[in-house]
Design a protein around this nucleic acid. Structure first.
Lengths: 197, 197
DNA sequence: TCGTTTCGGTACTCTTCCGTCTCGAAACGA
DNA sequence: TCGTTTCGAGACGGAAGAGTACCGAAACGA
C-alpha cells in the first residue's frame, strides 16, 4: 500500500536507469537469440550492469522476463466508431502503434517457446493475447447487436479467423512487420464478403 | 547414386534399430522439453545408445533434428473430389491422419523456436509448411477455375485465411489436437458464406 | 580365423552459465 | 561525518552438456 517516501530505506537508492537498462537488454537479447539465448550474464553485460544488480531486483530469470514482457505492449482500449469496419481499423492501427516494433518478431516466438513453461504461457496469454482477443470479440459482439453481422455468429471462431491469418503471416515471414501492412483490413473485408462466387 | 549392396563397407553394418531409436528419442524429447530440453546425452540415454553411435551418423544436433523432422509428416497429395469443400475435407482429414499426433504440439513450438536459427526455419518451412500451403493454394486455384470461387480471389491471402485460424487455435490451446476437431470445415464454411448480415 | 567396423557404455576435457560473494566507490539520510 | 545501501565489476564453485577417445564385445566379409 504505502510506497510513499516515508517508507524509504536508508542508503543509496536503486538506480531507475539500471532498472530500465536491464529490462531493455532482456528484450533485445530475447529478440536476437530467443529465450535460449537469454542468459543473466549476457543481460548484465548488455545493460552495463553487475549481475548482483539484477539479482537484487528479481529472484530468477523468469521473474525478470515477466516484467520485461509488460514493457512491450500497453493494454488496448475498445474503439467505438459506429461500424465494425471502423472499429476494426482503429483497433489494428492501435495495435501497431502500441506494440513495440520488436513485438512482431518476439511475441509469436515466445508464444510457441512457452509451450515448455506453463507459467510463462499463462503470463503471455494474460499480458498479450487475451486482451486482444477480448477486444476483437467485443467489436464483433456489438456488430451482431447492431445487426451489422449475422445473428448466429460464432464469436470465438470469428475472433480466431480475424487474428489467425495475421499470426500466421507474422510467423511464416519471420516477423517482418511489413508483411502484415494492410493485412488486417484485407482479411476483414474478405471475411465479410465471403469467397463464394 | 549406387547405394547398392556392392558399395557395402567391410565390418559390422550400422544398426537400423539404433538409427530409428535415435530419431524417435529425439522427437519424444523435443516434445517433452522443447528444443531447449534436447541434449545429445538425453537422446543417447533415451534411445539406449552410446553417444558415439549418434555422432557416427550426424555431425551435429541440428543435423540430427532435421532428419527427425522428416519423420513426423509425409508429403500430402492433392485430392480431387470435384468441389472445393470436398477437396478441403479430404485434405484436412489427410493432414490429421498423416501428421503424427505429437506434431500438433511439436510443430508450432518449433516454428517459433526456429526464429533463432535460419537453417532450421527453412527446413521447417520446406518440410512442413510449404507443402501444406501449396496444397491449399492448389485447391483454391481449381475452385476459381471452376467458377466456384470469386474470380479475383487473392490466393495467398485466402490460403493464410484458411490455415491461420487453425495455427492460431493450436498455438493458443497448447497444442491439444481436440481443440481443432472440426475446426477446418467450420472455418471454411464461414469463409465461403461471409459474416455480413 | 583375421581384419574391419559398429555396438553400448563410460571417462574425459572444454565451454557456458547460474547464483553467491566480495571489492572499493558512490549516493543517500541522520 | 557516519552508517547503510547500491553501484559496476569480477572471482568463485558447481552443474550441465558438447564432442572426443577409449573399452571389450559383437557382427560382418574375405
Amino acid at each position: 500500500m504505502s510506497t510513499s517516501a516515508d517508507a524509504r530505506r536508508p542508503g543509496r537508492p536503486r538506480s531507475p536507469e539500471a532498472h530500465a537498462a536491464i529490462l531493455r537488454a532482456a528484450l533485445e537479447l530475447a529478440l536476437e537469440g530467443g529465450l535460449r539465448g537469454l542468459s543473466m550474464e549476457a543481460i548484465a553485460a548488455r545493460a552495463g550492469v553487475g549481475k548482483a544488480t539484477i539479482y537484487r531486483r528479481w529472484k530468477s530469470k523468469e521473474a525478470l522476463f515477466m516484467d520485461a514482457l509488460g514493457e512491450i505492449a500497453t493494454t488496448p482500449d475498445v474503439p467505438d466508431t459506429g461500424t465494425v469496419r471502423g472499429d476494426f481499423m482503429a483497433a489494428s492501427a492501435q495495435a501497431v502503434d502500441r506494440l513495440a516494433p520488436q513485438a512482431f518478431r518476439l511475441v509469436p516466438r515466445l508464444l510457441a517457446e512457452a509451450g515448455d513453461d506453463p507459467e510463462l504461457l499463462e503470463a503471455m496469454h494474460e499480458a498479450l493475447l487475451r486482451p486482444r482477443k477480448a477486444l476483437i470479440a467485443e467489436i464483433l459482439r456489438r456488430g451482431v447487436e447492431r445487426g451489422e453481422l449475422r445473428a448466429g455468429l460464432d464469436i470465438d471462431l470469428a475472433t480466431d479467423m480475424v487474428l489467425g491469418p495475421i499470426i500466421a503471416r507474422v510467423l511464416t515471414s519471420g516477423g517482418d512487420p511489413r508483411s502484415i501492412a494492410g493485412l488486417p483490413l484485407r482479411v476483414w473485408d474478405a471475411l465479410v464478403e465471403g469467397m463464394g462466387a
